[in-house]
Every structure is written in structure tokens, then in C-alpha cells.
């Protein structure tokens, strides 16, 4: 009897689900013609290729960090390691910060002998893997990684960090020729990513900090600012990059003695980034009455 009841219940359930699906189907799956199906398939293929390109460039990005450390695998220290003062390195030459978004002190993935319980297994591991203890922390010449970055942006031209970090590597020698090469590379990046705030910022930084050309720097920051105010959809990285656009524009205008412009920038910047301490501090310093923040 029970089994008959169970079977009836299951059948009733299937019937209800079937009716429900019939009702929902048109909502979730609008009728499409042949053209629609073709478009859908084309989009699918494009998206698959896009995913592949993103995956390749992403993995190259990871590998580039590894090659810079000559194969020594690194990881950020854990909270516990930080508390127990485990020895790590902190952006020895700025490159670790660049590659890891300033994640803080790094340590080798293969543990040093004093932190390894494995005995001889640990010794063999350190002898066979590309391991160097933190006192020997060093980098390969950063420019050696440039071909990899070229490969990254070739596979995925929209990989913004691929352009910006490559520019950092290009300007590593810190001379005019190197900076100009970096700027040229970034301009190529803009032609692939015409709506990128981050690449414009990077060009502007190079002009401002390295080439001492504040006017050209200001021009690129203004381009970035225009993009931020254009209402264009952009990802979080690009949007957060805009914070530096406003800060730098504020400083450049200060250096150029354009105080009225500074005030406008602070108000506008705070409308985008209401909690930014730098802009808030600037607002206080210039005695600007806070307006309603959006």
C-alpha cells in the first residue's frame, strides 16, 4: 500500500514539475529563429576562444612571477606566520609588490629547514625543487620576462596588467630611452583598450614621475577622468584605478598652481570615492564645504 502511495506521489510530482516547466520555459528560453541559434553558437565559440585566451594569459602571468624568481615558488605569509615573525621578504626591489599587488611579505612555498618537520624528505625537496632560502632571495633580470608579457597581451590584448607590468619592466633601466619605450608600449595598449583608465594612468605616471612632463601627464589623466565621468561600464580594477587619477590630478594642479581646478577635482573625486582619506584630507586643507556626496 505504502509503495503504491509513494509511486502515486512521485508521479504526481513529476506531472506538476512538467506543467511548471512548460509554463516557465517560454520565460527562460525565448523562441529563437535559425539566425538566433547561429548567433548564439557564434557567441558561444567566441566566448570559448576568449576564455582560452584569458586562461592562457592568466597562466602566463602566474608563470612570469615564477620565472622572475628563477623558479622559486613564493607565497604570502599567513596571518599566523606574520604573528610568529617568520622570516620573509618584503618586495626586495619593488618587483614582488608589483607582481602581487603589494600583498606584503613573501616566503618560499617549500619551507626552510627550520620550519620543516619532514626531515630527510624536506632536505631532498629543497635539493630537487627550485628552492632558495629567503636570505638568497633574488630576481632574474626583469626584462627577461618581457617576451612572456608580449605573449600574454598577444593572447589576450584586454589583459590590462599585461600591458602595465610590461611597461614597468621596460622602464626598469630608468633612462629616457627606456621610459619612452614603455610609453610607446602603453600607447599600443590603449589602441587595443581605448577605454582603459589604468593604461592612461600608467602613461601619465611615467610622464609625471620619470620624464618630468607634467603637462603631458595631466593630459592623460584628464583622458582617464573623462572616461570615469562618461558613464561607461568598467570593471572594478579600472574604477579603482580612477582614484589615483583624481589624486594625481589634484597634485599636478597643485604643482601647476591651479587651485580652482583643484577644488573641482576634489569635489568630483569625492563624488566617486567618498571615503578616500587623501581627497578628504585635501578637502579639509582647502577649506572646501562638503557638498552632498553621491
Amino acid at each position: 500500500m505504502n509503495s503504491v502511495l509513494s509511486l502515486s506521489a512521485v508521479l504526481a510530482g513529476i506531472a506538476v514539475a512538467g506543467i511548471a516547466v512548460q509554463r516557465i520555459k517560454p520565460e527562460i528560453e525565448p523562441p529563437v529563429g535559425v539566425a538566433g541559434v547561429e548567433a548564439h553558437e557564434t557567441n558561444g565559440a567566441v566566448s570559448l576562444i576568449g576564455q582560452f585566451r584569458t586562461t592562457v594569459s592568466g597562466s602566463l602571468w602566474v608563470r612570469s612571477d615564477l620565472y622572475l624568481h628563477n623558479g622559486v615558488q613564493m607565497r604570502p605569509l599567513t596571518e599566523q606566520e606574520l604573528k610568529s615573525n617568520v622570516k620573509g621578504v618584503h618586495s626586495a626591489d619593488g618587483l614582488d609588490g608589483e607582481m602581487h599587488g603589494g600583498e606584503g611579505r613573501m616566503v618560499t612555498v617549500v619551507p626552510s629547514r627550520d620550519r620543516d618537520f619532514r626531515g630527510i624528505f624536506g632536505d631532498i625537496d629543497r635539493a630537487t625543487s627550485s628552492y632558495k632560502d629567503m636570505s638568497n632571495h633574488e630576481h632574474n633580470p626583469p626584462k627577461a620576462a618581457l617576451p612572456l608579457f608580449r605573449l600574454m597581451t598577444m593572447f589576450d590584448p584586454n589583459f590590462i596588467q599585461g600591458w602595465t607590468v610590461a611597461a614597468t619592466l621596460l622602464s626598469w633601466e630608468k633612462n629616457r630611452q627606456a621610459y619612452e619605450l614603455a610609453v610607446q608600449h602603453l600607447k599600443n595598449g590603449i589602441s587595443e583598450n581605448p577605454k582603459s583608465v589604468l593604461i592612461r594612468n600608467e602613461i601619465a605616471f611615467t610622464y609625471a614621475r620619470s620624464l618630468g612632463d607634467l603637462k603631458t601627464a595631466k593630459n592623460y589623466f584628464e583622458q582617464a577622468r573623462a572616461l570615469l565621468n562618461s558613464g561607461e561600464a568598467m570593471n572594478d580594477d579600472e574604477r579603482e584605478g580612477g582614484l589615483l587619477t583624481y589624486r594625481w590630478l589634484y597634485w599636478i594642479n597643485r604643482d601647476l598652481g591651479l587651485s580652482a581646478k583643484q577644488k573641482t577635482l576634489i569635489s568630483e573625486g569625492l563624488s566617486h570615492y567618498k571615503d578616500d582619506p587623501v581627497l578628504l584630507h585635501a578637502q579639509e586643507a582647502m577649506n572646501i564645504v562638503p557638498t552632498r556626496r553621491g
Binding site: 628563477n70 623558479g71 615558488q73 631532498i124 625537496d125 630537487t128 625543487s129 627550485s130 632574474n140
Partner: peptide, 20 residues
Amino acid sequence: QFGLFDLGGRAANMNWGPVP
């Protein structure tokens, strides 16, 4: 301990001397 047998990291990167 398969990881111990993989010298790929050393072989792929520059100037790693032979393993003792």
C-alpha cells in the same frame, strides 16, 4: 612523495646546478 622526483623547476629555470 612524487614531488621529490620532479626536477622540472630546476631544469626549466636558469643556472641551477646539478643535484648532489
